[in-house]
Nucleic acid binder design. Structure first.
Lengths: 117, 117
DNA sequence: TCCACTCTTCGAGGAATATCGTATTATCAG
DNA sequence: CTGATAATACGATATTCCTCGAAGAGTGGA
């Protein structure tokens, strides 16, 4: 992953609404969610939400597909994968303790909120 | 880590200059680098660089300390740790293949970009 | 065909970011 | 104290981003 691409992905996530939207899509899994459902849950006008979803899509973090009248958005695991890998490889010092973040993947699986950390 | 905080950290890194600066600090390790050295390597005017370093500092990603006339910036591993953990726990689907990013930590260690010594 | 529904595109405003020259503060050497 | 060095603070400007209402495009049912 190129730094430019990484910066774009980081920028796409660097907004509360977009981060929240992305998290909803993570929860939803591969099935994704229609744009309307996301807008409703976030409480934003649909045109505003579209703007944010496009940002995410442009960064390759989500995919979209049409299902009848709805447009379903879903996370693109590969992109997040690449981003986390980039941060782990390039932004964590060699001697820095950045690996522990990978262990609690199991606990993370159960609670979406994980206040444990 | 709160979503708000995560968004702030992501935003701080979501800029080519800042990402580059941060990577220099990662390379530099705990010793850090004086602001001037970073500015020179990035080719940005010092006032511009100060602006970016403040963004990083405000997000808690770097620390600063004075050494005689220079001000030394250094990465704050804990913050990056928390960010990667947040992404791993909240932004990687349960069934999504996000763990692989953690496994090849070994390969990452010897990748082209780590002048570990 | 006509209408209801879902979402995107467009356009405009206001807010926030980024850049950089200049001025100022802090430190050290002589 | 004075001058030189290193960095930050300030101010102005340009650019980009965010928001949202209104209008448009695609889909399916009657």
């Amino acid at each position: 992953m190129e730094p430019k691409q990484a910066a774009a992905a980081l920028g796409a996530l660097a907004h509360e609404h977009r981060l929240a939207a992305y998290r909803l899509l993570v929860e939803a899994g591969p099935e994704g969610l229609p744009a309307g459902a996301i807008a409703e849950r976030l409480g934003t006008p649909s045109s505003t939400l579209t703007f944010h979803l496009q940002q995410l899509r442009h960064a390759g973090l989500v995919t979209q597909r049409r299902l009848s009248r709805q447009i379903i958005y879903a996370m693109a695991p590969a992109a997040m994968n690449a981003l986390v890998a980039y941060l782990t490889e390039n932004c964590c010092g060699v001697q820095a303790s950045c690996t522990p973040a990978c262990e609690p993947a199991a606990s993370a699986a159960r609670s979406r909120k994980t206040p444990a950390a």
